[in-house]
């Protein structure tokens, strides 16, 4: 998908061992498959069903999402700043699209 569809917040720097908050937001309709258009046809289910985060290639967070999560899903979680590097985010949607985002962190 185009740029500007996902947004993440990771502290640029952190002390080693510090607990940091990571935030991620995706712009997505999260159609639950139960809604109808004005003409009576069903809007097919189209959601992000999985979200994953790697910290220097190690999976540190994953979630399976189901219907009934609101449009533009937002998630925040905490982790421990262990070393400098890259945090990679992946959102998987029903159409097989994967949206990615990454952020750098410097641990001092």
């Amino acid at each position: 998908m185009a740029d500007g569809i996902t947004r993440v917040a990771v502290p640029e720097t952190a002390a080693k061992g510090e607990i940091i908050e990571i935030k991620a937001l995706a712009s997505h309709p999260m159609d639950n498959g139960f809604m109808f258009r004005d003409n009576g046809t069903r809007i097919p289910r189209w959601i992000i069903h999985r979200f994953e985060v790697d910290y220097n290639d190690e999976l540190i967070f994953a979630a399976d999402w189901h219907v009934a999560i609101s449009a533009n899903p937002y998630i925040s979680f905490h982790t421990i700043a262990t070393e400098s590097g890259t945090i990679n985010f992946r959102w998987f949607d029903d159409n097989g699209d994967i949206y990615t985002e990454s952020a750098k962190i410097t641990v001092v």
Partner: peptide, 15 residues
Amino acid sequence: DFLNHAFFAVERGAE
């Protein structure tokens, strides 16, 4: 501004 869904539109507008 991070959470505000309208900022997706602002970013698109900037492009």
